[in-house]
C-alpha cells in the first residue's frame, strides 16, 4: 500500500461534471430559473376566489368528518356490488386476453408479424389513460358497467400482456431448446418449457391487477362507466359531502383489503 501512495502523494480527483462545458452548464441552470419565474408569473392568482374556495373547502371537510352511511345506503350497496362485479369480470377477461397477446409479444417465441401486432395492441392500451378509454367506451356502449368492464379489461392487457411478454423474453432458453429437440410442436413447447417458467409470476401479476382494477373501477365510474364511481359522482353533484365521505371510506377500506390479500397471495407465490 505504502509503495503505491509514495509515487505521487497528492493527486487530486473530482467527480467529472455531468455537463463538461462550464458555460453550457451554468447557462442551463440560469435558463431553468428564468423559465420558472415566467411560469409562476403566468398563473393568475385571484385571492378573492381562493378565499371563497377555502370557505367551501372548510364546509366540505366538516361534512367529511361526519360520514353518512345510512341515508343512501341502497345506492352505495348497489354501487359497491357493481364495482366488485366489474373488477372480477374485467380481470378475468383481461387475463384471458393477455395470455395469448403476451405470448405473441415475446420476441423469443413469436414470429415477427405476430410480434408486431401484439406489441401494437399493448402500446395502444398503454398509451391511453383509463379515463380516456372509459369515455370512448361510454360513447360506444352508453352509461353503465359494460363500458367500465370493457375499459378495465382493455387496460389490463396493456399491463399484464406487457409484463408477461417481458417475463417470457427472460426465460432460460435451454429447456425451450430441449423440449423442441424431443419433437414437440409449438403449443406443447409453450406448455412445457415456457408456462412453467412464468406461471407463478402470471398468477401474482393477475392478483396485483385485480386490486388495481378495483381502484380504477371507482375512477372510471366518474365518467359514467358504472360502479361506485358513478354513485360518488352523483353525490358530489348533489353536494352530499357526507354521503361522498362514506363512499370514500368504503372505497379506501376495499382497496386496502384487496391490497392486503393480494400482497399475501403474491408473497406465498415467491
Amino acid at each position: 500500500m505504502a509503495e503505491v501512495a509514495s509515487s505521487s502523494p497528492h493527486r487530486h480527483w473530482r467527480k467529472p461534471p455531468w455537463i463538461q462545458n462550464r458555460w453550457l452548464r451554468w447557462g442551463m441552470v440560469l435558463g431553468a430559473l428564468v423559465y420558472l419565474a415566467l411560469a409562476i408569473g403566468s398563473v393568475s392568482v385571484d385571492s378573492a376566489r381562493i378565499a371563497r374556495g377555502l370557505e367551501r373547502g372548510g364546509r366540505m371537510i366538516a361534512a367529511f368528518l361526519q360520514p353518512d352511511f345510512v341515508s343512501r345506503w341502497d345506492d352505495i350497496q348497489i354501487g359497491v356490488l357493481e364495482s366488485l362485479t366489474m373488477t372480477v369480470v374485467s380481470t378475468i377477461a383481461g387475463v384471458l386476453l393477455s395470455v395469448p397477446i403476451g405470448l405473441g409479444a415475446a420476441r423469443n417465441i413469436a414470429p415477427t408479424p405476430i410480434y408486431l401486432i401484439c406489441r401494437g395492441i399493448i402500446t395502444v392500451s398503454r398509451t391511453f389513460q383509463e379515463v380516456v378509454i372509459a369515455i370512448v367506451f361510454v360513447v360506444m356502449f352508453g352509461f353503465g358497467p359494460l363500458a367500465g368492464v370493457c375499459t378495465l379489461a382493455f387496460a389490463t392487457i396493456g399491463f399484464l400482456a406487457k409484463l408477461l411478454a417481458e417475463d417470457i423474453e427472460e426465460i432460460d432458453p435451454a429447456p425451450l431448446e430441449a423440449i423442441r429437440a424431443t419433437g414437440a410442436g409449438w403449443l406443447k413447447t409453450i406448455t412445457y418449457a415456457v408456462m412453467p417458467q412464468v406461471s407463478a409470476r402470471l398468477v401474482g401479476l393477475s392478483v396485483y391487477r385485480f386490486d388495481i382494477n378495483l381502484r380504477e373501477s371507482a375512477i372510471v365510474g366518474i365518467v359514467g362507466a358504472g360502479g361506485i364511481g358513478s354513485t360518488l359522482q352523483a353525490t358530489f353533484n348533489r353536494y352530499d359531502y357526507d354521503v361522498a365521505s362514506a363512499i370514500l371510506i368504503i372505497i379506501i377500506t376495499l382497496v386496502m383489503l384487496t391490497e392486503l390479500i393480494s400482497a399475501q397471495i403474491r408473497k406465498r407465490l415467491q
Binding site: D172, A174, A178, I179, Y192, A193, P196, Q197, S199
Partner: peptide
C-alpha cells in the same frame, strides 16, 4: 434423436 445438454436444460419448476 435424443439430446443431452451441458446445463441439463431441465424445466426447473416441473
Amino acid at each position: 434423436i435424443g439430446m443431452i445438454f451441458q446445463e441439463y436444460a431441465l424445466v426447473e419448476r416441473l
